[in-house]
Design a protein around this nucleic acid. Structure first.
Lengths: 230, 230
DNA sequence: CACAAAGTTCAACATCTGTTGAATTTGACG
DNA sequence: CGTCAAATTCAACAGATGTTGAACTTTGTG
């Protein structure tokens, strides 16, 4: 029983050191293909066979590596969440540390929180762009709410803590509502549906992530600061 | 051929005046069931048979009434979009008219734009709550972008026009970016994933739509006003 | 080389998918 | 009543779905 439930999270060939000639990136190709397909059509809109075909791999392989379709979906979500979380968390820590005893600026905190996502979406690696879309979709659906919690609760707690230091007089409720609005704006930006381009008749480009996130930071830094006085 | 392509948008029994004894609300039951299921699992995550079963109706009936699964989905989306659009548009018109020659307030405009959605989500009719979730999901997915355009472009153009009157010195780009963030926040609120409740340890309740939207209007009225000075 | 384990392929499974054409029922009207 | 069309049911279709067990191939090790 080579694909027992207890082991499908690990790479089957964990013990190898040197990469074999041809086959090692099959797992990676599966994740990439799944990422692209899931990000545009969602979990239910994608077929295991479509993923296998795009990855140029046998139909049985997704189940061998990931146990089930859902296992594959989770693995896709997990893979980059780790990378992103570390970057964002470290950024916030750095801002706090740099402020020493004083108050860090709201703008710096938000920049640290948002900038890695910017980098991902503006990346030349299309996988990162797909991943952003995937997160946006997961975050908008109630059935996958527990995936968001599992991967992002810790980071968000850190963000809120940092904002509490920057805005010591802010009421907790105001902080959370402002965060809620920020996530919404960020999520829609990550979804990258091209709708802002269409609505603005080309004035705003969702493809220009740097422009989007510059506006995002400015807008919400003001928003948090103002909300802190309520 | 009773379900020809050209007529599946109309109610089959259009010519009747008095409602028959038992069968007339089958179409409505189908729409309600589809609304509930589509809103939580998306288009691909729902089966025609699941919808038919929940509506206590034969499997063939959805196709008879709506031509196809996609036709059913479109009909669900269309049904309440009309109602909502009229209310929101009329509200904005009223604010503009009340201002006469002067400038309407940003807060009043946003309230008119948002309040009908609030009413829908706070409604005792669970169908409206489901519909809000459905719109949130559609808005976060690139594959259904043209559905959003078809139903909401006109209303959004009206909102932007109104904001231009209220903030005559604002740059177009700033207006559109601020609108983009507002939609994101509104969309996540409509999605009602319960995540804000969880994150705030119960301090904020997504079920309390009135509270959410009060914060939303205040937060974004300030945001628009500040962005207009950039 | 032989051996075992990991990796991969293949064919099939049981079930479900959206859709449809024919048959049946229903309701209104002359 | 009989007639006709709309509404509804029924059974089935052709194909797709996720998953799996058995067979086959590759790889590393003794």
């Amino acid at each position: 029983m080579p694909h027992a439930d207890s082991s499908f999270q690990k790479t089957p060939a964990a013990r190898k050191v040197a990469a074999p000639k041809e086959s090692p990136q099959r797992r990676r190709r599966l994740l990439d293909a799944a990422e692209e397909l899931f990000s545009s059509r969602g979990f239910y809109g994608v077929t295991v066979r479509q993923v296998a075909e795009m990855a140029e791999v046998d139909v049985a392989l997704p189940n061998y590596y990931f146990g089930s379709k859902r296992g594959l979906f989770d693995a896709v979500f997990h893979r980059r969440a780790e990378v992103l979380n570390e970057a964002r968390g470290a950024g916030i820590d750095a801002v706090i540390a740099a402020a020493g005893d004083g108050r860090p600026s709201v703008e710096d905190i938000l920049h640290a929180f948002i900038q890695p996502v910017l980098e991902a979406q503006a990346s030349s690696d299309p996988g990162w762009r797909n991943y952003c879309r995937l997160v946006a979709q997961v975050n908008s659906s109630a059935v996958f709410a527990e995936m968001m919690s599992t991967h992002f609760d810790e980071l968000i707690a850190k963000l809120i803590s940092a904002l509490r230091i920057a805005l010591p007089h802010a009421k907790e409720r105001e902080l959370y509502w402002a965060y809620h609005f920020l996530t919404g704006a960020l999520t829609l930006t990550m979804a990258d549906t091209g709708r802002i381009d269409h609505l603005s008749h080309g004035l705003c480009h969702s493809a220009d992530a740097h422009d989007a996130y510059r506006h995002l930071v400015t807008f919400f830094a003001r928003g948090f600061t103002a909300a802190a006085n309520d």
